[in-house]
Amino acid sequence: MTDHSDAPLIDGDVEANLEKQQAADNESQRNKKVLARQVARYLIQNPTFFAENIELLETIQFPRESGKTVSLMTHQTNLLRERNIEMRQRLDQLLQNARHNDEMFSHSRRLVLELLEARTVAEAGDALLKSFREDFGVEVTALTLFGPLPGSAGKLGQVRTSARANAEGSIGSILRNGRTVCGTLRPSENAYLFGKQADQVASAAVVPLADQLGILAVGSSDPNHYRSSLGTLFLSYIGEVLERLLPRLLEKS
């Protein structure tokens, strides 16, 4: 008969050995952490250490995403190259923004001068629509003045007219808001603002003119072009120019 009396003792020895090995591993990890803190503290207190031991820099290794390691020198070179690329990209973006702003200023200046030189509402409207189309790339522009406008019949050119009551019924919420609105409009709003060109408009920006004078609207076939977050500073600025100019031209009509 085989004697199995020693089996539990063997299992117990194995378990004990495993526990000792685990304890030793834990102690080794703690020692490494303590040593790492000591090394870090030493380097902080002695910032010239590597300058005095330059040969050690080549022995320092850094892990990479690929799993490979590289020397500190190579790591620093790669880091500087990446930062250089990032800085060039930022500089390119700044230059593009500067060129865009210069173009916007030049086009805006020319438009304002042409508006100031206009002798009639029709001339002002023609200058506005031409500039928006050719200089600013606007697909659809509509300038609507609220009537009645005595003595102006047939003298407004491309400028549209509408009774204030009709405007309230079609775009009342936009008028009551009183601020420039961007985004996708309801079909009835598009129809009122852009007339026969309404089916070309998927997004729009609308500027109510002060003192119930009228409304300026621009549209795009791109539903995302005039987003609700789109900056409206330029359109609001042109709206303010029209608010001051058109009443004087209407008096001359």
Rank of each mutant, 00 (worst) to 15 (best):
G151Q: 06
L193R: 03
L193M: 09
V201S: 01
A127H: 06
R176F: 08
G154M: 09
G195N: 09
G172A: 08
F132Y: 13
P150N: 03
A204T: 08
Q197E: 15
S152Q: 13
N190Q: 13
C182V: 02
S188V: 14
L91T: 12
R164V: 11
V159Y: 03
C182N: 15
F132R: 03
G195Y: 06
T180P: 01
T120P: 03
R176W: 00
A98T: 11
L113N: 13
A124T: 01
R90F: 09
D135I: 02
G157Q: 08
D102A: 13
R186H: 11
S170L: 07
T161L: 05
A98F: 11
F194M: 05
Q96W: 04
L91G: 01
Q93M: 08
L149R: 06
F194D: 04
R109V: 09
L91A: 12
L115E: 02
D92W: 06
S170K: 11
S170F: 03
V159I: 10
S152R: 03
N177Q: 12
G195F: 08
E103W: 10
R110M: 11
G157P: 05
N97I: 01
K130T: 14
L111E: 03
S108V: 05
T161V: 13
V121F: 06
C182S: 15
F105Q: 13
A167P: 05
A191R: 13
L128K: 02
D126A: 11
H100E: 14
P187S: 10
E134T: 14
Q200H: 11
A153C: 00
M104F: 01
E189S: 12
F194S: 02
A163Q: 14
F105V: 12
L145Q: 04
Y192W: 15
R90W: 00
L185Q: 04
S203K: 00
D135E: 15
I171G: 02
D135F: 03
A204N: 08
T141Q: 08
R179Q: 14
T161A: 12
F146R: 02
G178V: 09
N166K: 13
A167N: 07
Q89A: 14
P150S: 09
R186Q: 14
E168G: 00
A98R: 13
A204Y: 07
S188P: 00
R110E: 15
L94H: 12
D102R: 11
L94G: 09
